[in-house]
Design a protein around this nucleic acid. Sequence first.
DNA 1: CCTAAGTCCTGAGTGC
DNA 2: TGCACTCAGGACTTAG
Length: 273
Amino acid sequence: MPELPEVETVKKGLELIFGKRSQIAQIKLMRGDIRSPIPPIIKTVFNDRTIKGVRRRAKYLLIDTDAGILLCHLGMTGTWRLAKIGQERDHDHCYIILKDGRRLAFRDPRRFGLLDFIAPGCEEKHPRLRALGPEPLDVKAFTPSYLFEICRGRKIALKSAIMDQRIVVGVGNIYAQEALFRSRLSPTKRAGRLTLEQAAILVGHIRKVLTEAITAGGSTISDFRQAGGDNGYFQHNFQVYDRQGEPCPNCKTPLHSAVVGGRGTTWCRTCQR
DNA sequence: CCTAAGTCCTGAGTGC
DNA sequence: TGCACTCAGGACTTAG
């Protein structure tokens, strides 16, 4: 579920659920690790604390409380949902029990996600947040010249470059393919051969496709749901993702598929150069 | 058997 | 040889 638009959608759903000020009664962990160990302090440090807000940084969710931050990454299959008693599911790893009786469940079957605690004032130093690149929707930071310069001299595939969270955050395997198609740029193009003009086109399309997807409530494939339980709708707007063999929406040549940067990739070898 | 929305780690390679 | 860095590929896990 989780590239930037999906995480942003979950963030908005959690904000609605928490409202202005929700009180945590208790957090329950159903296991000690997902991809990495979950610090046991999470079981007690948030007791009787107030949730002040929810933020997104890259593909991470940050739940702010007066005792510190609950950091969450959804991995490939992470979801948050309201779960009444009796609505427990396999792979529910964490429950946030609110004082008003509602209960939020974090479910992540593949366990590629992350739950961590960040003490007050330690956000900047957190190893997972420290090395992140600019937000793609930050017009001041993610500029054509920034992308052009950071790609200069690099031999990696352009698709790998825009999926590298140190270069720009939030772009994953779906939106990278969609942004490259819209930009008429090949995913296999060497990043170092990107011109400033092409960087400007690509930056524009990355922003546009992410913004459109946020408006659509993200993309629902497999079992992604928004935190409120609704579907996203952007999957109906995919132009290349998982459409190998179908005609290119632009020139009708059958779309080509190959592994690029270790991930399945579909593009038009006629239009994208 | 294959594939899947992500990230981290390792080892090989390069240039100084 | 060694250091610093880049890059490709594998590993993690469950479900369909």
